[in-house]
């Protein structure tokens, strides 16, 4: 049992499957890319196949598709209002992608693309830039009033505005960090407990029971983190559209 081979962190290793080099930039097709594609294919298959029947009384799969639609539509309606409707495709794709890659990552021997901070940060920065652009386009210069809290005396402004600006800039970081940290921590913990099962021999049943419980917890976390990422996107969208927070 070599230590490197069974390291709890070995599961996060990026492996190049197909080497691609575009003008000196390493754009290789990796296991992470493969699992992202599997995620997208799974979502597309699940949604299109389940909606193919278009039954008035939905079957099991159609119910799942309709429920996920309703869930995100309701979230957007509640947090952004009717003006958020046109951002539904983006928010829905975001939610489904995160949810599916989190859940698919729980399958043994699979790879969790959301356990890499560059992936989560990529999504977070798209949300951040998109929301900021929407705010600027909708409100022009008035968008800057987001950084000036109302009802504050003038002499405090030079102190408060940098604080507001920095806390605005922390948004993509906290968004990315939260998803990444939760996914990585959960998967590492599962692997560490898995190591205990092997090391303890007969008494390995105890960590095995713990793994079963942890696995359930990880399923909740997988859903919850997709939910949190999406609802924060909605809240940021709400800030940009309605300029209050």
């Amino acid at each position: 049992m070599s230590a490197e081979k069974h390291s709890p962190l070995a599961q996060f290793e990026i492996k190049r499957l197909v080497d691609i080099d575009i003008a000196g930039i390493d754009a290789s097709f990796t296991n992470s890319s493969l699992w992202m594609i599997i995620t997208i294919v799974a979502i597309t298959l699940m949604l299109t196949m389940s909606m193919r029947g278009r039954a008035m009384v939905p079957g099991r799969w159609q119910s799942v598709a309709e429920l996920s639609y309703e869930f995100i539509a309701g979230m957007l309606r509640e947090n952004v209002g009717s003006q958020g409707r046109k951002y539904f495709p983006f928010v829905f794709s975001l939610f489904m992608f995160i949810l599916f890659s989190n859940v698919l990552g729980l399958i043994p021997y699979s790879f969790t693309s959301t356990s890499h901070i560059i992936v989560t940060f990529g999504m977070a920065i798209v949300v951040f830039l998109g929301v900021t652009l929407i705010g600027i386009i909708r409100h022009k210069a008035k968008f800057l009033s987001l950084f000036a809290p109302a009802g504050v005396p003038m002499f405090l402004m030079p102190l408060l505005i940098p604080i507001e600006v920095i806390s605005y800039l922390t948004r993509p970081v906290s968004l990315a960090l939260r998803l990444f940290a939760n996914m990585m921590a959960g998967h590492t913990l599962l692997k560490v407990f898995g190591g205990f099962v092997v090391a303890l021999g007969v008494f390995g049943v105890f960590p095995l029971v713990a793994i079963v419980a942890l696995y359930g917890l990880e399923l909740i976390v997988a859903f919850l983190q997709a939910y949190v990422f999406t609802i924060l996107t909605c809240l940021y969208l709400n800030d940009a559209i309605h300029l209050h927070h």
Binding site: S167, T170, V173, S174, L177, R178, N182, L224, Q225, V228
Partner: peptide, 12 residues
């Protein structure tokens, strides 16, 4: 989980 990350990201 939501709360803990706020602190870290502000520092970062």
């Amino acid at each position: 989980m939501r709360i803990a990350v706020e602190m870290i990201s502000a520092l970062l």
